[in-house]
């Protein structure tokens, strides 16, 4: 019997994969997603534990407060992504990836060393808006549905078309009048917003939050979601996130071998299905 909490984690994986997918659609390999995810979680953890007014009178944490946290987290992550994105997006290809890894590391060190954010111990006893994992399943399902729907729409909008054009040929896109700097920045900010929203729910779900959520492993895992799932349409990252989150758990019966199998899947995936599981619809 598979635990319902696995499904919650799968949905979280799919959301983070979409956050990686957004800049990648515009050809930008950003590994900053766990960083913005951590910012979202930290904002939620701080607000819900430090502001007694948000808790309300009931035993259950009010949903309106959760929504408020989400708005604050989105604003913080979005603003940070905007400020950082301007200079960082001048870097290309692998250099952007390196800079965003550094960003995640800096964030982790800052959070680890500052007592305001719980330092190395983390923030505990984050209040629960739902009584069981079912509530989180619905909340994550809803969030994923909204983000996936928005991504699907985006792909057919001029903005989404411009993003794909930049990925395929940036100079051609510029010649057609696409403001490439602006489009890249928008994709980066949207990605940060999605990751931060996922982080807010995660902080409540895990009940505690610490800086170790932002690490290099997480950057690579979320990237693997998109690499295996495919990065041409929104469905690829969703499938990749669901499958690759479930895989290590489903393989648990084979013990330590599971990580080897997991590694093989990530290794062989790009070799045998270079476009990912989900290809674009055109022939």
């Amino acid at each position: 019997m598979i635990d319902i909490s696995l499904f919650v984690l799968m949905l979280l994986g799919a959301l983070l994969a979409l956050a990686v997918y957004l800049p990648l659609r515009a050809g930008q390999l950003s590994l900053a997603t766990p960083g913005f995810y951590t910012i979202g979680g930290t904002v939620a953890a701080l607000l819900s534990t430090q502001l007694p007014g948000l808790g309300g009178s009931d035993a259950v944490y009010p949903l309106t407060s959760l929504l408020l946290e989400m708005i604050v987290a989105i604003a913080v992550a979005g603003l940070l992504a905007f400020l950082i994105g301007k200079p960082v997006l001048k870097l290309r290809g692998i250099y952007l990836a390196i800079a965003t890894i550094a960003l995640v590391e800096i964030l982790r060190v800052v959070l680890l060393s500052s007592p305001w954010f719980g330092a190395a111990v983390g923030i505990f006893a984050i209040p629960q808006p739902f009584e069981g994992p079912e509530g989180y399943l619905i909340a994550y399902g809803l969030l994923l549905a909204i983000v996936a729907w928005a991504c699907a729409r985006l792909e057919r909008q001029p903005l989404g078309m411009a993003m794909a054009a930049i990925r395929d040929d940036e100079l051609a896109a510029r010649c057609m009048g696409v403001s490439t700097d602006q489009v890249k920045l928008i994709a980066f900010v949207l990605s940060a917003i999605v990751a931060a929203a996922a982080g807010v729910l995660a902080a409540h779900y895990f009940n505690s939050w610490n800086a170790r959520q932002a690490n290099f492993d997480a950057s690579i895992t979320t990237l693997a979601f998109v690499v295996l799932g495919g990065s041409r349409t929104w469905l690829g990252p969703v499938i990749g996130g669901l499958v690759l989150t479930a895989l290590p758990e489903l393989l648990r019966p084979i013990g330590d071998l599971r990580l080897i199998v997991f590694g093989l899947v990530i290794l062989l995936g790009p070799i045998f299905i270079p476009q990912g599981l989900i290809k674009s619809k055109q022939s």
């Binding site: 078309m161 395929d168 040929d169 100079l171 051609a172 896109a173 057609m176 674009s280 055109q282």
Partner: peptide
């Protein structure tokens, strides 16, 4: 410098 992975129509729409 056409966008090789997109359709002819999508290329024209980008124009």
């Amino acid at each position: 410098r056409v966008l090789a992975k997109q359709t002819v129509l999508a290329n024209l729409e980008l124009g």
